[in-house]
Write a protein that binds this DNA or RNA. Sequence first.
DNA 1: TTATCTTATAGTTTATTTGACTACAAGTAT
DNA 2: ATACTTGTAGTCAAATAAACTATAAGATAA
Lengths: 238, 238
Amino acid sequence: MTTTEASKTTSHSAPILDSITIDCVIFGFNQGSLEVLLVKHADGISKDKWGLPGGWIYTDESTDDAANRLLLALTGIKDIYLEQLRAFSAPDRFPVSRVITIGYYALLKREDWVGLKPGATASEVAWFKVSEVETLIYDHLHILEIGLKRLRRRIKQEPIGFNMLPEKFTLLQLMHLYEEILGYEMDKPNFRRKILRMNLLTALDEKQKDVSHRAAKLYRFNPEVYQKLQQKGFNFEF
Amino acid sequence: MTTTEASKTTSHSAPILDSITIDCVIFGFNQGSLEVLLVKHADGISKDKWGLPGGWIYTDESTDDAANRLLLALTGIKDIYLEQLRAFSAPDRFPVSRVITIGYYALLKREDWVGLKPGATASEVAWFKVSEVETLIYDHLHILEIGLKRLRRRIKQEPIGFNMLPEKFTLLQLMHLYEEILGYEMDKPNFRRKILRMNLLTALDEKQKDVSHRAAKLYRFNPEVYQKLQQKGFNFEF
DNA sequence: TTATCTTATAGTTTATTTGACTACAAGTAT
DNA sequence: ATACTTGTAGTCAAATAAACTATAAGATAA
């Protein structure tokens, strides 16, 4: 394999599968915008171009394990929300040799992100607004699009949006997240009513601070309640 | 690679990827039951055991192409509804060597199925009721479960059920398909109203024949209308 | 300190959709 | 002719969604 793709991984020398990689679309929500974490390749045929973070798969790990390993190495964070998208397999997707990649997408709390982890291989890492990404190496733009499509679908069916918000958030912040991802505006009172009626949020005895207007109540997502409701056949829907 | 996995494919000698396969869950609807097409392996470590049809991927084709090629070889039918599930990658999923498989699921009209195509490699092929499948080779039972889950989700969001019915069908047949897949009973008049209101069905000037009761009107799914409605933001939902 | 601005939150009203039913129509079988 | 089965139409109450109004709770500034 060329250094181009090999540069995706750490310098770890464990045996790897030689024609399969993983690539990950990492979403974050920052100042009202949906963003994606990209890396700039240090060398190889895609030198100085931006692409999705990715890497090889060790022979003794699943692709889920590989994706989690990659995320930990890149962000220093464990237990990131992660879901497989699918395999991307166009014969010419990678110009040097035949490589199939398994796409993933992850949701990150921006408050957990502290910058590039020392020791990571990428020469540069940065957040980009999803709406402003225009070109990426290989078929990574396509993977990003599929990831975005999946996120839009999922966020209407499962309460995963919280994974991109701080632990404590206001209902308006949550609504803005939905508006940004789904691409349309919503009605504040109706949104409140609908989400509160589900009982998935715990109201805290706390309010926003440092805002120049009436402070809103803070809420926390309650995964335990969600699990219980799910078992009773409850279906999250937006 | 061993003959076990190799026996999945035809004896074609085109170059293949050596650690990736595809496996396909083929669903059909017959006499009120959801069924799956399985093959019995002729030799190798899984000799005489039932599993999903699968095969290798040529170096110059995508996994979608490989899946379509497999389906054509197995059934003789082109243009089968096909969607990728995801990659299955547990390191020990295939006991002989490290092989990742890309799972697919397909929907077949049982009227198109004419029995095993001459020249196919599998020693035996048969339809099984999904509810009665208990053991399959490797992780194929898991793939089947994921396929079923995906089918249940999709059928509520997109009008794909028609792919398992004859061209002309009655509303009750369609409802029975939904009941069987989703696992709960529905109300006849309400079902009619909801599906007809969507305008996706063309009423034909024909009725059922050879039934010992009042014959129901036959309908046909109209993909053109669906496409137009989709562009206008229409969302199929059940 | 009062007026004004901004956002939070509560409530109203109407239209639409769902779910559970009833009723009748159109055939077949006895 | 009668009973039986399934198809199809229609009713009605309850639940939900969409659009909107109104008020509350602060912060800011005249």
